[in-house]
Amino acid sequence: MALVSADTKISELLTELHQLIKQTQEERSRSEHNLLNIQKTHERMQTENKTSPYYRTKLRGLYTTAKADAEAECSILRHALDKIAEIKSLLEERRIAAKMAGVYSDSDPPRKTMRRGVLMTLLQQSAMTLPLWIGKPGDSPPPLCGAMPANSDYVAKPGDKVAARVKAVDGDEQWILAEVVSYSHSTNKYEVDDIDEEGKERHTLSRRRIIPLPQWKANPETDPEALFSKDQLVLALYPQTTCFYRALIHTPPHRPQDDYFVLFEDTSYADGYSPPLNVAQRYVVACKENKKK
């Protein structure tokens, strides 16, 4: 029943989203005219190569209008993106609920193990659609945006993806990609599932062994400070695996949809590092360990 109501909710939201998108376009076409005007004024000013008070006043007026337009456009776009996020969180809730149901009743249909390739694609997908954080002028990026660390009292929610440091069978410690199942405030411990369902392992780990993954992408165009910088030591998800390894940032992303290029510490290469490999913003977290192990 809950699922049915969620379905109707989602379709309602989708309709609202559609409306919002249409409004966005209206807004955009409205401001387009003004922007064109600005461009023309620019050109004229540059050809005349001087700024007379007339132009200055005119430009200022144009700028002010354009700014208001841009604000309106931004606000409506944000609205639309919020809608998308809302829909997605509903979908996510449904997924978690389904998963929980699957866990509690083993009887009907047994959890299918995902094929590895499918899992990798899913991970890529979720990395790509990680929402981009776009602040209003003056806003500084929030925690968990790009490289911004979480607040010290932050508790990851069930379903959140985290990097978890687990002990493997052979005693080695490894950072794996995991999903939070629950958090106990009394013991300060997380219960997490290995994302790679082949393992089907559930780990109980202290919060020190958990690094929440970013919840927003940082926009390199507006908030480059929220990105890891070159040569910084990070933990990054090795491509086609579900494990995090130590790496150095080679190049930070330049555009919102870009990935980092990182050099993994890898002794099979002559200089101790792999060639640059791309890893999505979502799967790059700060490496807290010091060099000494």
Binding site: C74, A80, L81, L132, N219, T222
Partner: peptide
């Protein structure tokens, strides 16, 4: 939408 918003907010700034 993110692309649009990104560009709009850059313009705004």
């Amino acid at each position: 939408l993110e692309t649009l918003l990104s560009s709009a907010s850059r313009r705004l700034r």
